[in-house]
């Protein structure tokens, strides 16, 4: 395997392209995915590679094209729906929440929905309140869907390829802030299994659990805290559904302290769920309650300094770790 270095966005495209070559049932649709090469250039070149029947520009009509893709998936096709932003998924709430995750159940096993819905999720670009959604807070509440949030380019490829092959609906959340990140990505087939968290940095004093972009904030905080003699174990959850609670629990039983970092709002979030599960599994192992770092419980602001204060960051994570360890 070569030591090839490519961008996160190219890793995403490679997964889609390889799966489309493998399986003619796979196709891509969304706003600007074809002639424009994708609003964030993720699908660059795919129109030339596969033609307009399989790389399909849609109008700005999320409810329509998401619902259309779900209908196609009921008949066994494997659509990849790109939402330019997950913020725009809210106008498609009925198809993506009422149809995709419930079809198998409502039909008593007759019709599944092997669809991937992917796009940019999360704040960080001064886009204001309506364009900065972290939909994992809301959507992870719904059984029947899987949710994958890669933090590194190799996972971007391996997790998206797994998502496309998955027989269940997968909500695939990408951070626009990570798309230019470069890393080693295997060239050939590369599949990262769902429900397997990975330890990004081993440590002994505290378990830092996160997923997606805030994993990088956790690694930054761990680097700072190491200078203070605090050893952080950083776990990248990769998927929220399925959630790999076992890896978290194993770590917390070793460190006896846990900080969960989640860029969605705190109320009823993946972070609150993980904290609850850690409390249930590790009640006797914990030296303090699980600490949580979320976005501030306000609409996302525009001003750069306010947005910086709004999001989880390394400083706030380090403060939470010190608090969890009773370090003044």
């Amino acid at each position: 395997m070569s030591e090839r270095i490519i961008e996160f966005r190219d890793a995403l495209r490679e997964a889609m392209s390889q799966e489309m070559h493998r399986d003619p049932r796979v196709f891509l649709l969304g706003e600007e995915v074809a002639e424009y090469d994708g609003a964030y250039k993720v699908s660059r070149g795919m129109l030339e590679e596969f033609g307009p029947r399989r790389v399909i520009d849609t109008p700005i009509s999320e409810s329509g094209f998401a619902g259309m893709a779900i209908g196609a998936a009921m008949l066994g096709l494997r659509p990849i729906v790109e939402f330019m932003s997950w913020s725009f998924s809210l106008v498609a709430a009925d198809p993506i929440l009422n149809n995709a995750p419930k079809m198998l159940y409502m039909s008593g096993g007759q019709f599944g929905c092997p669809i991937v819905i992917r796009g940019n999720d999360g704040a960080g670009g001064q886009l204001g309140s309506t364009h900065s959604w972290c939909v994992e807070g809301m959507f992870s509440n719904v059984p029947g869907l899987k949710m994958a949030i890669p933090a590194f380019p190799d996972d971007a490829k391996g997790m998206l390829a797994t998502a496309i092959r998955d027989d269940d609906p997968v909500f695939f959340l990408e951070s626009e802030r990570l798309l230019a990140m470069k890393g080693h990505v295997p060239e050939g087939d590369h599949y990262v299994p769902f429900g397997k968290a990975v330890v990004r940095r081993p440590g002994t004093d505290v378990t830092l659990f996160s997923f997606g972009r805030p994993v990088h904030f956790c690694l930054d905080a761990a680097e700072e805290l190491a200078k203070e003699g605090i050893s952080c174990e950083v776990i990248d959850g990769r998927t929220i559904r399925p959630l790999d609670i076992d890896t978290i629990v194993e770590s917390v039983r070793k460190t006896n302290a846990c900080v969960v970092v989640d860029q969605s709002w705190s109320f009823g979030s993946p972070g609150s769920e993980v904290a609850a599960q850690v409390h249930a599994h590790c009640f006797d192992d914990l030296d303090n309650h699980v600490m949580r770092v979320h976005s501030a419980d306000v609409p996302s602001p525009y001003a750069a300094n306010l947005e910086q204060a709004f999001l989880p960051n390394a400083r706030r994570i380090a403060e939470a770790v010190r608090s969890a360890l009773y370090v003044a």
Binding site: P24, R53, A66, G71, L75, P95
Partner: peptide
């Protein structure tokens, strides 16, 4: 809710017939 699904079912049949 079934109307976008209807478009998708017809899309899938056409895709199967023509593209695949």
């Amino acid at each position: 809710a079934q109307t976008p699904l209807g478009t998708g079912l017809a899309f899938a049949k056409k895709y199967q017939d023509e593209v695949i």
